[in-house]
């Protein structure tokens, strides 16, 4: 199935979950819940933006990917991979110091990796990709 059909729907669910974590009084508002809620909201919004923009491109007949989008994706992936190495070390250190993660250390780590990927791709789009 096409990405521009799946992605917006998936993003709506992620966004709803993130907002629920942020706003619902049922969820214990520890700082980890807050960070996870913010990350899920950012991921949901980014996914929704990507999905809608892919649908718009498909409607206009533009290519969904070209060399610039591929290079941005590649660069953002490499940055987020590099940063995530330090994030995982930090998370393991936090867990050893009795920090309890609402959705487990794995879920938190993956959420942070996606968050770093999104931030990297936004920064690359703002700064450009010269001399790459």
């Amino acid at each position: 199935m096409k990405r521009y059909i799946i992605l917006p729907w998936l993003s709506v669910f992620i966004l709803a979950d993130g907002l629920y974590m942020l706003l619902s009084p049922m969820v214990k508002n520890t700082w980890i819940d807050l960070v996870q809620g913010i990350l899920m909201t950012i991921i949901g919004l980014f996914g929704l933006y990507q999905g809608v923009s892919a649908a718009w491109s498909a409607w206009r007949g533009d290519p969904l990917k070209d060399e610039l989008t591929r290079k941005i994706r590649l660069k953002a992936s490499s940055i987020s991979f590099y940063i995530s190495i330090w994030v995982w070390i930090g998370l393991m250190f936090a867990e050893k110091n009795q920090v309890r993660f609402h959705s487990g250390i794995l879920g938190t780590g993956v959420l942070i990796m996606i968050g770093v990927y999104i931030i990297s791709s936004v920064v690359i789009r703002i700064r450009g990709l010269r001399d790459e």
């Binding site: 533009d62 070209d66 610039l68 989008t69 450009g128 990709l129 010269r130």
Partner: peptide, 13 residues
């Protein structure tokens, strides 16, 4: 994509 042309014209790529 048009975005690529925008990046090129701004010397960002």
């Amino acid at each position: 994509r048009r975005e690529t042309i925008v990046f090129l014209e701004k010397n960002k790529y």
